[in-house]
Amino acid sequence: MSLKKLLKPFKLLSIAKKAGVVTVLYPYQKPLITSEFRGKIVIDASKCMGCGACANVCPPNALSITETEESVILNYFVGRCIFCGMCADVCPVGAIRVSNEFELATTNIDNLNTVLVHKLKGCVDCGKPFITSRMLENVLKKVPFAEKYINECPDCRRKRFINIVSARKR
């Protein structure tokens, strides 16, 4: 009995034999990733309209929107990304896809940034750039009625509205 107990630790050998070798020769052999794995996100430049919903919801601010005079810049810095995929959930046009890429180490920091520049379209009245052309298309697709005012910037729209109202008052 006590000898049997003493020999119990040697049972490990049979466990090990049954389990076999479970490690892999990474990176020569690829590690197993399940179908659900969330890695780096990929932004489809042909779909993105620069609305900024993703930047708004991103917990670590890996996605950020910068607005300049003539353009909207969407920047994805993978160094901050926590791979939660919230951006893909909220993107209204499905431009963001969560890939299973995870080997992101690089010697050049620029490789960590993905920059997307959207040129802004000018207002028909004052010429001030205010909307990305894809956003405009999208709004029209969803609200065809918007055709009547969508080419004007919010300022001009407001002005026109005030003008109409004041004209009516008169």
């Binding site: 389990a19 197993l32 399940t34 659900e36 794995f37 969330r38 926590i82 791979f83 995929g85 919230m86």
Partner: peptide, 22 residues
């Protein structure tokens, strides 16, 4: 840890990530 690895793979399958499931 060999046994645990199966749990890690399982959590990845369930949530999309081995840890910090999000």
């Amino acid at each position: 840890w060999r046994i645990r690895e199966k749990v890690m793979v399982l959590s990845e399958l369930l949530t999309g990530s081995r840890k910090t499931y999000g």
